[in-house]
Amino acid sequence: MTYKLILNGKTLKGETTTEAVDAATAEKVFKQYANDNGSDGEWTYDDATKTFTVTE
C-alpha cells in the first residue's frame, strides 16, 4: 500500500510517499525520514487516507 507523509515543519515542509506492508512499517520509514531532515513534532495518522502528518 502507498502511505503519504505531510510535513508541516518550521523549516521543512512538503509531502512524500512510501510503499509499505502496513501503517506501522510506513511510520518507521517516515519517522526516520523526518529525523534525518531535522523535523520533530506532533504526529497524527488518518487511516482512511493512509496519511501521516507531522506538525512542528
Rank of each mutant, 00 (worst) to 15 (best):
L12Q: 11
Y45T: 00
E15V: 11
A48R: 09
G9Y: 10
A23M: 11
K10M: 12
K13H: 10
G41F: 11
G38V: 07
D40N: 13
G41Y: 12
K4P: 02
S39W: 15
L5W: 02
I6R: 05
V21L: 12
W43T: 00
G14Q: 13
T51I: 04
K13P: 05
F30T: 01
L5N: 02
D36I: 11
D40M: 12
T55F: 08
I6F: 06
T55L: 06
K10H: 12
A34M: 11
D47H: 11
V29C: 07
V54Y: 11
K50L: 10
G41L: 12
Y33M: 05
N35C: 10
T17Y: 13
W43L: 04
V21K: 13
Y3N: 03
M1G: 11
I6N: 03
A34T: 08
Y45D: 00
F52W: 06
G41S: 05
A34D: 01
Y45N: 00
D22A: 02
T16S: 06
Y3H: 03
G38N: 11
G14V: 15
K4L: 07
K50P: 00
K50T: 03
D22P: 00
N35L: 15
T49Q: 05
V21T: 11
A23V: 13
T55R: 06
K31G: 02
T17A: 06
S39P: 07
S39R: 09
N8G: 05
N37V: 15
Y3V: 02
D40T: 14
I6C: 07
V21W: 11
N35G: 09
F52L: 01
D22C: 04
D22E: 04
L5T: 01
K10S: 12
T18L: 12
G14A: 14
K28R: 12
T25F: 07
D36K: 09
M1P: 08
V21S: 12
L7T: 05
G14E: 11
T44M: 07
K10F: 12
Y45E: 01
Q32G: 06
V21Q: 11
D36Y: 09
E15K: 06
Y33S: 02
E56G: 07
Q32N: 07
G38R: 07
E42H: 11
G41E: 03
L5I: 03
E27P: 00
E27H: 10
T18W: 07
A34K: 03
L12A: 12
F30V: 00
L12W: 15
L7Q: 03
W43S: 01
N8I: 15
E27R: 07
T44W: 08
N35D: 11
T44H: 12
N8P: 05
T11N: 13
T11G: 14
A20N: 02
A23G: 04
K13D: 05
V21G: 08
K28L: 12
M1A: 13
G38I: 13
K31L: 06
T25N: 07
T16W: 15
D46V: 04
K31T: 04
L7A: 04
T25Q: 13
V29F: 15
F30M: 01
A24N: 07
K28I: 10
G38L: 13
A24E: 12
D47V: 08
E19C: 14
T44Q: 08
T49N: 07
Q32Y: 04
D40H: 14
G38C: 10
A23H: 08
K31R: 15
A20H: 02
D47A: 13
E19V: 15
E27Y: 15
G9N: 06
G41A: 04
V54W: 11
T44I: 08
L5R: 00
T55Q: 07
T17F: 13
A26P: 00
T16Q: 09
N35H: 14
T49D: 04
T11K: 08
E42Q: 10
L5S: 01
D22I: 01
T18H: 06
N8D: 10
L12G: 12
L5D: 03
N35F: 15
G14N: 10
F52I: 00
G41I: 05
G9D: 05
G38F: 15
T17V: 08
D47L: 06
A48P: 06
A24S: 09
T16K: 09
G14C: 15
A26E: 00
D22T: 04
G38Q: 07
K4A: 04
T51R: 02
E42N: 09
T18Y: 10
E27Q: 10
A23D: 04
A48F: 09
T18Q: 04
S39H: 15
L12E: 08
K50G: 04
A48D: 10
G41V: 05
G14K: 14
K50W: 04
T2I: 14
N8Y: 12
L5V: 04
N8S: 10
G14Y: 15
Y3K: 01
V54D: 01
E15S: 10
G9L: 15
L7R: 02
A48E: 12
T16Y: 15
